[in-house]
């Protein structure tokens, strides 16, 4: 074997032994030390690529907290690369705002950092309940692109509130009663008054329902009262007009509920209600037809018992 061939082989072996290099995700600094990557508005269905929600990180003087990790190991790795372009500080926390697959399946990308994984006290149970079907669905939607993605449960949970010190700034985590899901968590960065709402707030994208929508509606005044100057919603553009965004969401909920209750009273079946309920809201939201129909499928059978 020639020395040159030996070198080529050596390089090849080294390339195989190092983890695949991941293209850093584009991120935007929406407030000092607060970075967001905004996913695309794709449906969780065929055509889903694993990068549809807002994920990001907050940098303190001691270390970094990741807030949601994306829908695949690869998206998580690319988020990690984005962090490494900005700081070499240790990644201390990986916080999941809720159980949905687009927010959690990048968790494994941070395992080598040995972070504390943080979530709502009910998140481990919610993950366990959905593990089987999430793994199956995401494999079907994403195929190879889902390879290596895992469900990693929180190692520290929040019941009520929890403060995380990143050095020079404190994150205040709040665990909410059932709303968008049964385990929603918000993260408030006090230093910049930036609120990560998780999917308790949707901007542009039609709000999707899963946990307890009637309770979610009741919580909106409390959410709006949080001391924030801007919010990073679960989906859509981060905004300083975040209280108005909650009002938009509230309006959609109320129109949908009113229409469904009227439909049930008139004996309009669920299938028909899917076509008509909240139709006036369609112009205001992305992916309205798909998501609104699912919301009807969830709400109608519950409202029938009122």
């Amino acid at each position: 074997m020639t020395p040159m061939l030996q070198n080529v082989l050596l390089i090849l072996v080294m390339a195989l032994a190092t983890p695949a290099w991941a293209e850093p995700l584009p991120v935007k600094e929406v407030a000092a030390g607060v970075y967001v990557h905004q996913g695309a508005h794709e449906d969780l269905d065929a055509g889903y690529h694993g990068d549809i929600c807002n994920i990001g990180f907050v940098v303190g003087s001691k270390g970094v907290a990741v807030i949601d990790s994306g829908g695949t190991l690869d998206v998580g790795r690319r988020l990690r690369e984005a962090i490494r372009k900005i700081t070499d500080l240790p990644i201390l926390y990986v916080i999941n705002t809720h159980v949905h697959p687009d927010h959690i399946f990048g968790n494994a990308a941070f395992r080598e950092d040995n972070p504390v994984y943080v979530g709502h006290a009910k998140l481990p149970e919610a993950m366990e309940r959905r593990k089987e079907s999430y793994m199956r669905n995401n494999m079907a939607w994403l195929g190879e692109a889902f390879a290596g993605s895992e469900m990693i449960k929180p190692t520290r949970t929040v019941d009520g509130t929890l403060e995380l010190d990143l050095g020079g700034r404190t994150l205040q985590l709040t665990a909410w009663p059932p709303a968008h899901t049964h385990a929603d968590l918000t993260v408030l960065d006090r230093a910049t008054a930036t609120l990560w709402t998780g999917d308790l707030l949707f901007v542009e994208r039609t709000p999707s329902m899963d946990g307890d929508t009637l309770n979610w509606i009741k919580l909106i005044p409390q959410l709006k009262a949080l001391p924030a100057a801007r919010a990073i919603p679960g989906h859509g553009t981060p905004t300083e007009q975040w209280q108005a965004a909650f009002d938009n969401q509230q309006r959609y909920f109320q129109v949908l509920l009113d229409d469904l209750r009227a439909a049930i009273k008139k004996g309009v079946p669920m299938e028909k209600a899917m076509e008509t309920a909240a139709a006036g809201e369609k112009a205001h939201w992305v992916l309205f037809d798909n998501v609104n129909r699912r919301n009807v499928n969830l709400l109608y059978p519950l409202l029938e018992w009122e």
């Binding site: 079946p269 899917m274 699912r294 009807v296 059978p301």
Partner: peptide, 14 residues
């Protein structure tokens, strides 16, 4: 029934 069900838990059929 729907061509694609919104929810596998409650698929409306006639």
């Amino acid at each position: 029934g729907p061509r694609r069900a919104e929810s596998g838990a409650q698929v409306p059929v006639t």
